[in-house]
Design a binder for these strands. Structure first.
Lengths: 214, 214
DNA sequence: ATGGAAGTGTAACAATTGTTACCGGAAATG
DNA sequence: CATTTCCGGTAACAATTGTTACACTTCCAT
């Protein structure tokens, strides 16, 4: 168990300076989260900032009618910009964070984050890089939603999903895909069928196989 | 001219600690920008971080086809989160910043920003607050674009515009509105006409008068 | 095995938005 | 004053997306 923790922290050693790593080792907590679990819901106030050590997290926005929209994934070594800022400002979350796969997460108490900003330049850089990357991703999402049509959004979504999982097989129902894109199951089925006819992919129950020329 | 500069800085005194204000006074520059001028374009790297002292700025995203979409306004005392992060990471901008009205801007050299983060807690707080607010606004934009229909977006847009200018008169052509919403002039004309029939507003050439029950 | 739930395919239709085209009036320009 | 440009109204149509409904299959649980 302890060696595992050390292993995880080793992954962060290229990012953070030694003194900070030492603090991470003693002052933070490692948490295990199961796939599908919710880390934080909209409106909740967060108590600690997470760094993803293993697995993939998902950050999404849910509108008043309960409709969902995927914002971005949090991969290994990454964190969530919104948590940083929410933490530091003690604000409640405007998004939902959940575990896309089983996750191992490093939980950093709020008070540390704040002092580390002044103390460790590697931490400051990490925070700023995270914020910048997330801004870029959210703006990319805006591009998709504002300017792209559903067929292209669907394709990009599946490609991203495939990249995350490292497989050309996507294990999702049409309903789940529709939810993440903020649209309707029938629309997704329709577009997927068209893509299958165009030999871009193969459809199975609960599964989609992406072909090379997608 | 010097008294003016001092006046402007006085506006910031509730936000920043005295020592930081002193640094602001000696180490920054005040710039005047005309309405419509571009402050930064997509792809450009920024050289200084702006704080808006007077006037209103506009931050928008432009897609590959040249279509525009308004992200948010920068009002007095505010700054742009994207500039902070871009500055600190020396990244090029992914958005366009321009002057909505004539603006007076405080330009802060990049190198200062970075050290201030460690030095002044009021600065750190200002930066974090700005980032948080902008995230919220961008996510609000996502909500609009992803979940709302054009009529509601149009109404929200005009209300925001009216709030910014402090007037129920909006001096814009349908084309300009369409551009900022990322849609088509005919669509805007159509929806505006419907709103006029519903007695929500009055239409004139280059001008829209919002009525109370909009 | 069998009944029910879940997932998919599809049709039919509505609603929204985008596109093109053309007209007429208002403003600007000389 | 004449000409041109800009702005808005509107029709007609296309394309996209949303909605409802229903059939059929697969899977699961009792």
């Amino acid at each position: 168990m302890f060696t595992q923790a050390a292993d995880y922290l080793n992954k962060l050693s290229p990012i953070f300076e030694p003194a900070l790593l030492a603090e991470l080792e003693t002052k933070t907590m490692i948490m295990e989260v199961k796939a599908g679990d919710t880390l934080i819901n909209m409106g909740q106030t967060i108590r600690a900032t997470p760094i993803m050590l293993k697995g993939v997290g998902k950050v999404s926005r849910i509108n008043d009618d309960g409709q969902e929209l995927l914002l971005y994934y949090v991969k290994e070594g990454e964190s969530c910009a919104l948590t940083f800022t929410c933490c530091m400002m003690a604000q409640s979350s405007v998004v939902r964070g959940s575990a896309e796969e089983d996750c191992t997460i490093l939980a950093i108490p709020i008070n540390l984050m704040d002092s580390w900003m002044a103390e460790y330049s590697s931490w400051k850089k990490y925070v700023m890089t995270t914020i910048l990357n997330r801004f870029n991703e959210v703006i990319k999402t805006i591009d998709e939603v504002a300017f792209k049509k559903m067929d292209e959004r669907l394709i990009n979504y599946m490609k991203e999903k495939s990249k995350i999982s490292g497989s050309s097989l996507i294990n999702l129902t049409h309903q789940q895909i529709a939810d993440e894109l903020g649209t309707n199951r029938v629309v997704v089925s329709r577009l997927l069928k068209k893509l299958e006819i165009d030999k871009k992919l193969l459809l199975y129950r609960n599964q989609i196989k992406l072909l090379k020329d997608l």
